[in-house]
């Protein structure tokens, strides 16, 4: 295979996903000519928590696992932020945010440790963990409420460069790059992909498989906590029940973003673009005067079609 062809295949998500986003944006403008800078701003803000949920899920899925507690962890971070930041100053709120991210790492560590120690499959552990974290979120904040200082909430609002680049997008890029790039370029990133791709070969190459699985959940926990903070930013309050939505939609973004659910294949950029697409769908439906609840149907259908397509491809490959 020639070099460009190989590059194309390996980075298909990188090429296709921006085109898809552009296509959806173009369609949005066509449907709704008044779609302007403000709408782009709210799109970027709306996509922020979903993109971070997808980031959390991506790390775990790349390592060959699956995390059904992402949304609940986000909810915990969200309600903790809304409760503690309500009467805090801007500086204090940044300090609290840092603590919450640390807490996210610790929660991810708990998930990972239970998983490795109990030898129960990822699915069961994180399903149960999801309900436990969800319960904790409800204990911290029974009803949607709380808040955060305006300066903190405004981090994600506004634009740069004459309204061309929404701050929320900059924030997303900065945060994901700050967490993921060091991981990706370190030995951890390499071992993460390795255990997701082939655990036996990775083990024989000298990789500490269990430790890497554990660390994947820690990094996932960090992303979940940041996602919870982003949720506080977009909604201004804490809502303990936001959980399930982001678990499912985050997984959808991962699948649509070209990450293989069997692990080892895919990247971080695909799911980020997919998060924008999944956020654009309900927006477009509103502009089209179609019931935005169709958005959920379309998301569900998209997941099902993408995974079925993957299954079909596998079937065809096995039967030459």
């Amino acid at each position: 295979m020639t070099r460009p062809g190989r590059l194309l295949r390996r980075h298909a998500a990188l090429l296709v996903m921006p085109m898809l986003v552009a296509l959806f944006l173009a369609a949005t403008v066509a449907i709704h000519p008044a779609f302007g800078a403000f709408d782009v701003q709210s799109l970027a803000l709306g996509a922020l928590p979903l993109a971070l949920a997808a980031a959390a899920q991506t790390v775990v899925v790349l390592s060959g696992g699956i995390d059904l507690s992402v949304g609940s962890l986000m909810a915990v971070a969200n309600v903790v932020a809304a409760r503690t930041m309500q009467h805090a100053g801007f500086g204090q709120s940044l300090g609290l945010a840092a603590l919450i991210v640390l807490g996210g790492a610790a929660s991810g560590a708990v998930n990972g440790a239970v998983l490795v120690a109990s030898r129960v499959p990822d699915v069961v552990v994180t399903l149960a963990a999801g309900f436990i974290w969800g319960g904790i979120a409800l204990l911290i904040l029974e009803q949607p409420g709380g808040g955060a200082p305006d300066a903190f909430l405004n981090l994600g609002a506004g634009t740069l460069f004459d309204g061309l680049v929404p701050n929320a997008l900059v924030l997303l890029i900065v945060v994901v790059a700050a967490i993921w790039l060091p991981v990706r370029s370190s030995r951890l990133g390499l071992t993460l992909y390795a255990i997701g791709s082939d655990r036996t070969a990775a083990f024989r190459s000298g990789v500490a498989v269990e430790r890497t699985r554990f660390l994947a959940y820690v990094v996932g926990g960090v992303f979940s906590a940041v996602g919870g903070l982003a949720l506080t930013m977009t909604t201004g309050i804490g809502s303990p029940l936001a959980g399930t939505y982001y678990t499912l939609s985050g997984l959808a973004a991962v699948v649509v973003g070209g990450v293989s659910l069997t692990g080892g294949r895919g990247g971080m950029t695909g799911p980020m673009f997919a998060a924008y697409i999944l956020t654009l769908i309900p927006t477009d439906l509103i502009f089209l005067n179609i019931d935005p609840n169709f958005g959920q149907v379309i998301q569900g259908t998209l997941i099902v079609l993408v995974v079925m397509g993957g299954g079909l491809a596998t079937l065809l490959r096995q039967r030459p």
Binding site: L190, Y193, S197, T200, A201, S205, G264, R265
Partner: peptide
């Protein structure tokens, strides 16, 4: 059956085993 991880490049596999 070689202890090489299929989804990594040769260079990455070498780094994996240092």
């Amino acid at each position: 059956d070689p202890a090489l991880v299929p989804d990594l490049t040769i260079a990455q596999n070498l780094r994996l085993a240092r």
